[in-house]
Design a protein around this nucleic acid. Structure first.
Lengths: 120, 120
DNA sequence: AGTTACATGTGTGTTTTACATATAGCGGAC
DNA sequence: GTCCGCTATATGTAAAACACACATGTAACT
């Protein structure tokens, strides 16, 4: 069966230009968890506030959560039929790194946009 | 043979956090070509100014250039053992879309960073 | 009993990026 | 005159990131 980012397609046949930051779900997740512990479905609903996307792929979200836990960046506890995640100290440190990287990304993008505006 | 983003690895074993914009090489390329026509190797040397990376993968760059040409976003002419690319009208329109998308990306990232700073 | 919402996952295809390598001309070092 | 580095353009392919389909179970509501 053929798959593809159908939802990102535009009329012209090319992809919709979204200018997404690579792996942005990860820092978004870490930030939400720093604000308060939460379970997967909860995060699924709150992530779009940060990502700007209509919805986040739940499959990838749960996989990401378990990967983060494997790396010791979040911890989890099972209770009442749901798994509640919390940010670990290491996870907080990674979030700090993400914030710094995103600041540098802002600078690069600003440079780009300034250079773009000059030629208009 | 095992591969991976070795150059992006950090000491801890995790990836280096770079917060790169997806497919950013494309708009960077289009912007450089709007400023003046150029050939692949020239672009290869000038791209890091915009991308912030030390080097751009030349293999993917040449593939991208031909893909853009196939889509009518750039045109090219062969002369003196090198192929010189120019931005087409459609390519300029795509660049405009990228600029708009990058502005929205800036807003999302700013939102993220503000929310991040509040909890510090 | 059937539908919807909550909640957590697996399987797998597609796209993008990273890395290795091939080819060829050209100019200087030796 | 050939070895080396630089310019210049590519192909092949592995790994990572992302999108989509689907499975499973509880609880609520109608």
């Amino acid at each position: 069966m053929r798959h593809g980012p159908r939802s990102r397609r535009r009329s012209g046949g090319r992809w919709r230009v979204f200018a997404r930051v690579e792996r942005f779900t990860e820092p978004a997740l870490l930030l939400l968890l720093r604000e308060r512990p939460a379970h997967g479905y909860d995060l699924l609903e709150r992530l779009p506030e940060l990502t700007g996307e209509q919805r986040v792929e739940m499959g990838n979200l749960y996989r990401l959560l378990r990967a983060l836990e494997d790396e010791g960046l979040v911890t989890s506890e099972w209770a009442d039929g749901k798994r509640t995640y919390s940010l670990s100290e290491q996870g907080g440190a990674l979030l700090d790194q993400w914030a710094e990287a995103l600041r540098r990304s802002q600078e690069r993008t600003e440079l780009f946009l300034n250079r773009y505006s000059q030629g208009r």
